[in-house]
Design a binder for these strands. Structure first.
Lengths: 352, 352
DNA sequence: CGAGCCTTCTTTACCGGTAAAGGGGCTTGA
DNA sequence: TCAAGCCCCTTTACCGGTAAAGAAGGCTCG
């Protein structure tokens, strides 16, 4: 790619062509009230003729200090984010809020990219989505001293946080199953650490997880581990949120002697995978197996049976992230409400 | 938001603190081989101590001419794009290609935003997705003279275009239905013009459409309107691609005396809506009604029955868009291959 | 032993704008 | 009638860097 930015002449060229000061040309573009309408018209005409398309954004930014753009930094694969309806909904909210404010939205993928793009980003602020505390990118962004917001993870006491009360939401899921009468319940967790582990895990791993997502599992446990009968729960950890991972997890539960009558999945995508695995094993949902998801992505209403899940306001989360970044009076930490949506994938256990 | 960019001092401040030339500091960051390792180390330490986090991106860009960022300009609501798996897949491809090249990806929504953001965008090039020929944004971008690519629409003979052969793909869909023996076939079209029309349309509207999407309908017609028996086809136009619109379209076809035995939908989202409408009318797919989609979004495999549709390589499209923008040798116009994927939503017509 | 060269920095000239202050001519009002 | 004020435009000083050329000192090598 050739340096085509200055291929079209500059503000000064236009000024020279008209024999006027370059500041006047600048004013023609930025402060129409500072010059006569006639001259302004003449300038605009000349500019068009010379194919000058307006002030160089970089130069302008150098003066004003504003990029009119905010960055969204994505910890993992952006491509994966676009495939994930939950992530997409969040990004949609950010996009919407940006559009309303006339801002651009710059997307960065951390994984596999040089962290220096963070330093090179021409932006006014950063929104971090699911990055680790010790992420280089995060540190670099802090060093830049620009406004920041972190989503779903309380990374820093001085940096605004937006998330949900995962634990309470998860409790509602588990309670729902318990109310239905389930006693053999299994859990499919999302990743609890950065080691890419896949398999059965114990309570210790949940306790020591640095991720906020662990609160979902803790929430399940809050309900299942107390009351008249403590329910021994098997937990499977999936390294990522996808149908395939959900299927793998389910297969492993199905192998057991005492197959669970219900499965709590930490995301809808996992839950959908569980349902598919059940189908291919001839296990009927919800008759033989109840499944609860988390997130309430659009697909939750498309699968058969429609998924019982926790609705979380992803779009609103995105919108609030922008607000938290730009509005001085925005609160430092904010947790959005969630609600359990009971659809068709849960029912009383079939003990026949 | 306060102007926080220069809150941390500049390259010159660091130089002054060390009593050296500012160029040397610049070199410390950009050309380590131009100075002694010891001095570089000292500079970096001082910089860190002074909370100087590296060269100002805007200033750097002003010199180098590169923003290390490309823009994706979206004609309609970006929020809608994130909800649409087809659009998301494309964006995912762009994101992936950008990440590989260490570029940022700037997203713009045209709708409802001031077009001037195009002029203000600190970018090296533009990818336009489904914008109209007379879109102001598009014109402004041309004026800026930066590299451009247009997706799915041949807007300009000199600007690279990436798309698919909609007509041929659509022919394959129609042929599939015909091969199965269908004679009463209806079409649900995507928008053919910018007037927001919803309802039955005639052939004339298809012919006069300025959009490339019209070629899907033309492709259907190619097959249905020829051969031993011309099949009279009813066409419904939906203003946007969504389940709801598909449902509305289907409802209108179901009202007719001679209900179609098959429906060709111009997108999977429409097709899924059609299937849902059928279900709520007690019409079984594919026994009573065959449905063909277009795009092969992930949801096409999640719905029951799984959708017969045309697979198009969205992610690849995104990747190629970036390549077309940056690689000098990329072809000016390129059409990607598609293929008909036959799943469970189509069958022989039930004439019983 | 001195020319030539490399290493390591510095000087100077931009990049393409914006902002604040300045200045000439004309209107206004006491 | 003359100072004050306004309209329009210009001058000047930056914004925070990069790049090319220059200079001082030490090294190599014939």
């Amino acid at each position: 790619m050739k340096p085509s930015l200055n291929a079209r002449g500059t503000l000064r060229d236009v000024a020279k062509a008209l024999g006027i000061s370059h500041t006047t040309v600048s004013n023609a573009f930025n402060r129409p009230d500072q010059l006569s309408p006639e001259l302004r018209e003449k300038i605009m005409t000349t500019a068009r003729a010379m194919k000058y398309s307006g002030p160089n954004p970089a130069a302008r930014m150098l003066n004003t200090g504003y990029a009119q753009t905010i960055a969204v930094v994505w910890a993992e694969s952006l491509r994966g984010a676009f495939e994930d309806q939950a992530a997409s909904a969040f990004l949609g909210g950010v996009a919407e809020a940006c559009a309303e404010r006339g801002l651009g939205m710059l997307l960065f993928q951390v994984q596999g990219t040089s962290p220096s793009i963070i330093q090179a980003a021409v932006v006014d602020g950063f929104i971090f989505y699911s990055v680790a505390k010790d992420d280089v990118t995060f540190k670099l962004a802090i060093e830049r001293g620009l406004p920041m917001v972190v989503i779903d993870r309380k990374l820093h006491s001085r940096i605004p946080y937006i998330g949900i009360d995962n634990r309470a939401a998860a409790r509602a899921c588990a309670q729902h199953l318990r109310d239905l009468g389930h006693e053999r319940i299994a859990i499919v967790s999302l990743k609890l650490n950065f080691d890419g582990y896949r398999g059965f895990i114990d309570e210790q791993r949940v306790k020591s997880s640095p991720l906020d997502l662990a609160n979902r599992i803790k929430g399940y446990q809050d309900v299942l581990g107390k009351g008249r009968s403590k329910i021994p729960v098997r937990i499977w950890e999936s390294p990522s949120s996808s149908k395939e991972e959900g299927r793998i997890a389910a297969e492993n539960f199905f192998l057991e002697d005492d197959r669970p009558t219900a499965i709590l999945a930490a995301s809808d995508r996992l839950a959908i995978g569980v349902i598919e695995a059940a189908r291919s094993h001839g296990i009927q949902v919800p008759r033989d197996l109840s499944v609860v998801g988390f997130d309430d992505i659009p697909a939750a209403q498309v699968v058969a049976p429609q998924l019982t899940t926790v609705h979380q306001p992803f779009t609103e989360k995105g919108r609030l992230a922008v607000s938290a970044l730009l509005d001085e009076k925005a609160p430092l930490r904010r947790e959005l409400p969630t609600r359990l949506v009971i659809r068709q994938s849960t029912d009383k256990p079939n003990l026949g």
